[in-house]
């Protein structure tokens, strides 16, 4: 089975889907504090992009970042432990939903400042390549981020210095409640083209379409090409953030939500599998997540005495008391 095998791609979208559904339940149950930004409905993008990347390629995610971290290969058990604030979490319980990072699998972190991660990834890929590694990077961001100046500065640096970074815009139609039409002058590919970057628009609900568009861009980048942009059109099935489950915000008509949900990446990819294969993957995903939850719940909470552990890589201990 190759990495971009249809079964494998289905497994990734299904894993993210069920991970997120369980995470939403854990938020409702009060086990995950602070809530999450569910990636539900957008699974095809992280899965498709990461299927076309190598293990050593680098990515950054967003505040809606669980899918990015899982698709790149982080352990779901340690990811869940992170959401539950456990010492065994990817970030030892210091990061949580919005900062989950796993440098060992090339995830330089979900990043909760909208538009901020592109420049970080550009610098990281540039640095690794000058040390002789031929890897590339992919940085995920939403439609809201395309109006942040710092991201546009990163487009310029990456294009100017031909750093092979794939800028992946997950256009789910809204930045929180602000519709794209109310926020974006011009177009999203137009922003890339202004910097001389090739740009493609792809159906983000079709994991294979995302994978193929990514594979084409990555092949050009590995052959010496500069950065590219993909605008993946998608729809967020659930709330911007789980706080919306308690506070109804009136910005999406029910008909629109129903139409958006009718194109489901899990179903689209699932239809490409035999019923037997699909059932086997579904069972495997449930078993994986059952074990993940068991692991996470059995894991210790961090000792408050170490609340500021890792504040400094140099080991400096912050002054906590008076004097």
């Amino acid at each position: 089975m190759t990495r971009d095998d249809p079964v494998r791609l289905y497994r990734t979208v299904r894993l993210i889907r069920r991970f997120e559904e369980r995470a939403v339940d854990l938020v409702r149950a009060g086990a995950i504090v602070g809530g999450i930004h569910p990636y539900l409905g957008q699974e095809g993008i992280a899965a498709g992009v990461c299927a076309a990347l190598r293990d050593d390629d680098l990515v950054t995610g967003t505040h809606r970042g669980h899918g990015h971290v899982l698709a790149k290969g982080a352990d779901p058990a340690r990811m869940l432990a992170e959401l539950l604030g456990r010492e065994t979490g990817l970030n030892r319980g210091r990061g949580g939903s919005m900062h989950a990072a796993d440098l060992a699998v090339g995830v330089l972190g979900a990043n909760a400042i909208v538009g901020a991660a592109g420049a970080i990834l550009t610098g990281a890929v540039w640095a690794r390549r000058r040390r002789g590694d031929d890897l590339v990077g992919a940085t995920f961001f939403g439609d809201g981020a395309v109006n942040e100046g710092m991201l546009l500065e990163a487009f310029n640096l990456a294009a100017l210095w031909r750093v092979p970074v794939l800028f992946v815009c997950e256009n789910n139609g809204y930045a929180t409640t602000m519709p794209v039409e109310g926020a974006v002058a011009g177009t999203i590919p137009g922003r890339a083209e202004a910097f001389g970057m090739p740009a493609a628009v792809v159906d983000g609900q079709d994991p294979e379409a995302v994978r193929d568009a990514t594979a084409a861009a990555v092949a050009r980048m590995r052959a010496g090409g500069g950065p590219e942009l993909i605008e993946a059109r998608t729809y967020r099935f659930d709330a911007h953030h789980t706080f919306e489950h308690a506070v109804r915000l009136d910005y999406r008509a029910p008909q629109e939500v129903a139409a958006g949900r009718s194109r489901d990446p899990v179903e689209i990819q699932g239809a490409r599998l035999s019923g037997v294969d699909r059932a086997a993957v579904d069972a495997d995903v449930e078993a994986t997540l059952d074990a993940a939850l068991e692991f996470a719940l059995a894991s210790p909470e961090p000792d408050p005495a170490g609340a500021l552990a890792h504040l400094y890589a140099s080991g400096l201990v912050a002054r906590t008391g008076g004097g």
Partner: peptide, 28 residues
Amino acid sequence: PDRVVDTPLSEQAFTSFATGAALAGLRP
């Protein structure tokens, strides 16, 4: 010029670019 890198006027991008380069093992 590989080690004395002139940047465009993009303070926010090059400051975070340095963060990325540092994460990747360089010392900007």
